[in-house]
């Protein structure tokens, strides 16, 4: 799943560790989500969306919405 977490984080000038602290997860978790190695659960996705005051679908993209729109 693609996401814009890195962009949102750097816009605010936060390090991965700072974001991890705000979400109460490990820095490795943030890195894994940013690099697309790990897809967060729904509760964590909501926590991220709430922190950045965005909708979940604005941050995470499963690639299906684009192909659906194209159909």
């Amino acid at each position: 799943m693609n996401n814009i977490l890195r962009i949102l984080r750097t816009e605010r000038g936060w390090s991965q560790a700072e974001l991890a602290d705000r979400l109460d997860v490990s820095r490795q978790s943030v890195n894994a989500i940013e690099t697309g190695k790990y897809d967060p659960s729904l509760p964590l996705a909501f926590a991220i969306a709430r922190l950045f005051e965005r909708g979940i679908e604005e941050i995470f993209d499963d690639g299906l919405s684009v192909s659906k729109a194209a159909e």
Binding site: V25, S26, S29, Y38, P40
Partner: peptide, 9 residues
């Protein structure tokens, strides 16, 4: 008790 990614690992 830890976060989900750490737990999975």
């Amino acid at each position: 008790e830890t976060d989900e990614y750490t737990r999975a690992r």
